[in-house]
């Protein structure tokens, strides 16, 4: 069983939900990312989602877009991101790490080389935002060949046929996009999320993580009552941005914020 599947299985036994923070690797500077990852684990993160910077992040809102720009100002490449995961793994062998990004840097490295390098670094899952199941066959084969979980998005507009198609390729968990919009948008509607999660559960046995638009600990608590995991992204990346001129303080501040999400989720039920 992969680290991700083990993680969700253990949480389910304890009747808890996964807290999945997202930060962009190398933001605001490459030296801080590994420290930040450890701080997030300490604050209660179950899985870490690490954004791979890309010059043209089409599905992201302005907050995560600017995070990519800050990281790219330091020339943070996919190789560098894998190096960060490797160095995180030197002292943490339990917490799953999921890379989230766009396909082109992976294309540039080559699918097989990427899968091998990612496995060697200790990556557990890969979500390529602009690769729908229709185009995913080759990369999914390469990832599964190295026991890495391919993570896919399901959107509010995904119909049953698409969900089934995604489910046939996905492993680890399914990432449900809670709203029609880009990351960091503000129109989270719990009732419609609840209805869609029920539809997905009718098709897929995989754990369901929900992200996009999770701003407050209360949002996370609400989602925790209906989902298996909650992804917190733009809210954290905004904190990174606000403290970009004093990167050393970022792990502490993010840790504090994340603790509040953890507390709200654990006291939701």
């Amino acid at each position: 069983m992969s680290r991700i599947s083990t993680c969700f299985a253990d949480l389910a036994k304890a009747n808890r939900q996964a807290l999945i923070p997202f930060v962009t690797a190398g933001d605001p500077e490459p030296g801080i990312t590994v420290t930040l990852m450890h701080a997030m684990v300490k604050a209660g993160a179950d899985i870490i989602e690490l954004g791979v910077p890309f010059s043209d992040p089409m599905a992201d809102g302005p907050v995560i877009q600017r995070a990519s720009e800050r990281a790219l100002a330091h020339n943070v490449s996919l190789y560098d991101v894998l190096g960060m995961v490797k160095s995180f793994r030197e002292t943490n062998n339990e917490t799953p790490v999921v890379l989230m990004g766009y396909l082109n840097p992976v294309e540039a490295m080559g699918y097989e080389a990427f899968a091998e390098n990612a496995a060697n670094a200790g990556v557990d899952g890969v979500l390529t935002v602009d690769m729908p199941p229709e185009e995913a066959k080759d990369l999914v084969a390469a990832l599964k060949g190295k026991d890495i979980d391919p993570i896919f998005l399901v959107a509010p507009t995904s119909n049953a046929g698409r969900i089934a198609r995604i489910n046939a390729l996905a492993s680890g968990f399914i990432y449900y996009v809670s709203l029609k919009g880009v990351t960091g948008a503000a129109n989270l509607d719990i009732d419609s999320v609840k209805a869609k999660l029920a539809e997905i559960r009718g098709i897929s046995q995989l754990p369901l993580g929900v992200g996009f638009g999770v701003r407050e600990p209360a949002d996370a608590a609400n989602l925790a009552s209906i989902a298996d995991g909650v992804i917190v992204g733009s809210t954290l990346v905004k904190i990174v941005e606000e403290n970009a001129d004093q990167p050393d303080k970022i792990p502490g501040i993010i840790g504090e914020t994340l603790s509040k999400f953890r507390h709200a989720m654990d006291n939701a039920a």
């Binding site: 599905a59 185009e135 399901v154 507009t157």
Partner: peptide, 20 residues
């Protein structure tokens, strides 16, 4: 039928755009 011209083209869009 999936939009490919040899190895090029295709439909590389986020799931949020696949329905439209």
């Amino acid at each position: 039928e999936d939009g490919h011209f040899g190895p090029y083209g295709g439909c590389f869009a986020a799931e949020t755009l696949m329905a439209p």
